[in-house]
Amino acid sequence: MSIPPGHFLMLAAVLFTIGVAGAILRRNAIIVLMSIELMLNAVNLTLLTAGRAMGDIDSHVFVFFSLTVAAAEVAIGLALVVAIFRSLGRTEVDDISVMHG
């Protein structure tokens, strides 16, 4: 017996909400990055669910791409965090606000 798609979707929604809350509420840049990863994976999960429910392989391909891009994004994001930490000594995102208007 297979798990109905609704469950997967619900899980994805919960994960996405947690990611959003983390990205907006937390100050630590690494936590924010992790929250963004969480949101991405929630979306991936949605895609896979839909693909599976509709018997369509295209969404799986999308997810592979998305994973690849996410990996690259994390690499760059972490590199930025390291660079910020080196110059400021902290990784609070609110401190990185020199571009305000």
Partner: peptide
Amino acid sequence: WLRGWQTGYVRSYALSVL
């Protein structure tokens, strides 16, 4: 007026996107 929106805080941008 638009400048006021450009706070420089990532979270406020994220909130706008949301």
